[in-house]
Each structure stands twice: as C-alpha cells, then as structure tokens.
C-alpha cells in the first residue's frame, strides 16, 4: 500500500522540491500551504507522514503538531518537522510538541529521503 505524505510549507519552491523528491520515492503526495489547511487535510486524509514547516502564516508548525498529537484518532500520523530556524531551543520545542523527528533547512535531500523512509518503515 502506498504511503501518504502531506507536505506543509508556505514557500512555493521548497514545496516543489519536496513534492518531486517524495513522488520519486513512490509516495502519494498532497500539499498544504498553511497551518490551518494542514490540520484540515490531516484530519481528512490521515497521511502516514507530515513534512511540516514551522514558520507559516495563520498557524505555526508547532501549533499544528500539538493539535495533531493531542488527538488520539491521529496517533498514527508521523511528523517530521522542518525549520529554517536552526536554534537548539526550536528543536527542543518541536520535539516537546510531539514531533517525531526534526530537520533543519537547508537539508540534504539524501538524508531527508532516508529519514522519511526510516520513519515510515518503523511499524
């Protein structure tokens, strides 16, 4: 069964690159441009993994993360947070909010793909 991945980012070009990468790996990809849309799509589509940007309009990645993780129905959804703010506090905050993994931008595409693959094969 094809794994579903939701890409959440407000930067058009980054979305393009992530979409290209994920599709090449054979995943089913959907896209959300801000936090609210992301939450709606997660509830509707229940993706296996979310690539979640932190700095977004309307609802930040942290808020999305918290909301998803506090919903038992969405327990299966894995979250990989991506942030351009590389400070340690941001990483710690993301993990505290329940993110399953964390990567800072700019990321290595290889590492990202491996990470995604690893997270999806954990179960």
């Amino acid at each position: 069964m094809t794994k579903k991945i939701l890409i959440v980012d407000d930067e058009q070009n980054i979305v393009i690159s992530l979409e290209f990468l994920m599709k090449r790996e054979g995943y089913e990809v959907s896209i959300a441009g801000d936090g609210e849309e992301a939450v709606a799509r997660i509830r509707r589509e229940e993706p296996d993994l979310v690539l979640l940007d932190v700095m977004m309009p309307r609802k930040s990645g942290f808020e999305v993360c918290q909301e998803i993780k506090s919903d038992p129905a969405l327990k299966a959804v894995r979250i990989l947070m991506l942030t351009a703010k590389g400070r340690d506090t941001e990483v710690a905050k993301g993990l505290a909010m329940g993110a399953d993994a964390y990567m800072t931008k700019p990321f290595s595409t290889k590492e990202l793909v491996e990470k995604v693959r690893a997270m999806l094969s954990e179960r």
Partner: peptide, 10 residues
C-alpha cells in the same frame, strides 16, 4: 536558509 533550502534541494 529559505532560499538556500531550495537552491540546495534542487
């Protein structure tokens, strides 16, 4: 980092 991310990824 945001433009760098795109540049690196592509």
């Amino acid at each position: 980092r945001t433009p760098l991310t795109s540049i690196r990824a592509f």
